[in-house]
Design a protein around this nucleic acid. Sequence first.
RNA 1: GGGUGAUUAGCUCAGUUGGUUAGAGCGCUUCGUUUACAUCGAAGAAGUCGGGGGUUCGAAUCCCUCAUCACCCACCA
Length: 763
Amino acid sequence: MDSTYSHKDHEDKIYKLWEESGALNPDTQKNADKSKPPYTILLPPPNANASLHAGHGMFVVEDILVRYHRMLGQPTEWLPGTDHAGFETQYVYEKHLAKQGTSRFQFDRQTLFDDIYQFVQDNSGTIFAQLKKLGFSCDWSRATFMLDDKVVKIVYDTFAQMVEDGMVYRDNYIVNYSPKQGTTFSDLEVTYATRQDPFYYIRYSSDPEIIISTVRPETKFRDTALACNPNDPRYKDLIGKTITFNGLLGPVEMQIIADDEVDMEFGTGIMKVTPAHDAHDFALGKKYDLPVLPLIDFMGKMDFSWYIDSHQSPATSHESLYLERARKYHGKKVAEARKLIVEDMMAEGMIVKVDEKYTHNVAVDYKTGSDIEPMVMPNWFVATKKLAAPAIAAARNKKVQFVPARFEKTYYDWMENIRDWPISRQIVWGIRIPIWYSVKDNPNLSVTFLDKDKNRVTGIVGELLGDIRYTTYDILSGLQSLRAPMGAKYVVSVDSPGEDFLPETDTFDTWFSSGQWPLTTLNYPNGDDFNRFFPTQVLDTMWDILFFWVARMIMFSLYKTGEVPFSTVYLHSMVTDEKGAKMSKSKGNVVNPIELVDKYGADALRMALIAGSAPGNPIALSENKVRGYRNFSNKLWNIGRYITLLTEQSEFSSSKVQVSSQSEDKKLIDELNDLVKKTTENLDNYRFSDAALSAYDFVWNRLASDYLEKTKSREDKEAVFATLYTVFSTCLKLLHPFMPFVTEAIWQEFGGELLITSPWPVY
RNA sequence: GGGUGAUUAGCUCAGUUGGUUAGAGCGCUUCGUUUACAUCGAAGAAGUCGGGGGUUCGAAUCCCUCAUCACCCACCA
């Protein structure tokens, strides 16, 4: 044995040994005891085109659990996979296209999908190779990709079933829409940016005095009411009345409604209601039956065609001015239009005050920070209330338990206030929603497609088909996007129901498919794996996707099977930099785990991530800490080396050793037994840090520094050897889940079967 | 606005249901080339456990309160 442990000489070879031994697959796992219940964990699928980041390293808790239960003799399944990651991946791909000077608009949706598929294929494989570098003992034979046929089939089945059960519906509803990204986002995908914007006080009327305040004067053209608090003495007498005033586009009539939700303290206490472009106003509109009048189009541009078209022949100079204004605003981006509108309002003396330093929160999408424009449009929704009820009950009945327990409360808070879930995304990369629209029944479908000459054409299907140049087939083959108006007739079908049909171009929210991961990976409902491994034992992930993913898996699983998909949710640490700050590219404090593995070995990194970590709490990763555990790897190696040297220097052989009855030796054995008990209990209770550190402490301080040093002077080398060998080999087992490579490497030096499938010590 | 977590040695953090002199790693000081390991060994310094109050025979641990930091949810025109 070399005098220092060189991880590079061992890690890859050992991983190969494990793979070849069949240990990673429960069907070939040598020590699998069929009479014992299987132990199953599903790896949260990383993005297929991702590479490893420090956060992935925390999946080590899963490897620890899997290795521990494998050593207990349970048939053990750790099922890996990758996610297509919908919008995130398409965003990455679009940046890639931009670099090549092109964009998604140059391709029909099928071509674009195929190209992204290829792009993802080209980048896939790295993440699995990197997970292997960390020593993760996944069953690669069952690796699943979110777009595999078996996954897509189950997702389609679920959708069809939900449509039938009335759990999925199509509705015209206000959604978070990003004009820049061209897609809807769910509430969870929206975040808020604090911004400073001018806050305008606009006079609507002098007698009675009505001044409203807003940051969005450009939307006032489609206001459908003014609202005040019913108890506001300033406006009490006006409630229910209709006032008339002069707007930039002529006289406007507006009724005044009252609602408790209007805050008397805020601004002037009276607000404009724009149901088409504000979620709160939309809700008010529903309550008071106000019309929804859109003003901003899907590209984020002002649409004044509603005014222009109906005011084509102005009779007065006023009317000419109004029309001129409407034309000026029309087609402008929101921000630009706002400027022009404010200028005109200023000129008209309508703006009485501007608070330039008003700070407020603006909705942006979580990934790119593009502005969210609340828009009313048809989307597919999942009715979540009925799904949530059993999911809440399951947690209350302890069918699912959270580690740490406090997340149970977070889970309830979200589940009890759950809102319907918009699942359609206007992107290409994902699983297409299996809906078809007949062009005959729906002549008012709006489509964008590339014609035979690759020109981009947008229009209404009925009109386009009246043109000799276009057939349904042309539209279908060049199709980029389709927008079906509310009330369109549709057929739920995976394949085209006929020649006269055009497909829904929306795809599912990526979480709609990943939410069914326990079902799709295990081949619900009749797969052997499903019968064997479902429900699984532990789901481990970080707390940031508790709602996105964990909650959805619980809901889907209960909906489809009546059972929870896993009994324990373990929420591992967020990996931060050494100062405890969140890692981010912009801060430049991102640690590359593979570099640390190269430098110090996977075992060292694993220990650094586990030692001192607690579920639900952040863990600071520093190179120093990793180096410290690299030293421990070397310590283990050298203890092994010392034991080997003992046998080489003496005549006795390792096969016939017996632990002596010397009190010094017996005491150590007793302490070892305590350690085995403690480690086992800690593992059973998800106390990984304690389990790792108690073994670390025992090996280094008790075994190496104390016992080993003291016994160097002893004459009865054979007895010392016996004790050392017994104690140390047990310690290797205890440490194997945490430091699989070095423990296996030493084990191999001792000869014999693989450590990975050796029995866990008993106490 | 609602909620959660954190605050323990210079740094990063453990401390399970309250129980003897509060722990680890790194760092620091002094010494050591003892053939397992200098990726080491020996010895050592260092904390009134955020402030205040309370419960208890006993509190880092339970309760109240304040402060600071971090995060989550909602988002007021």
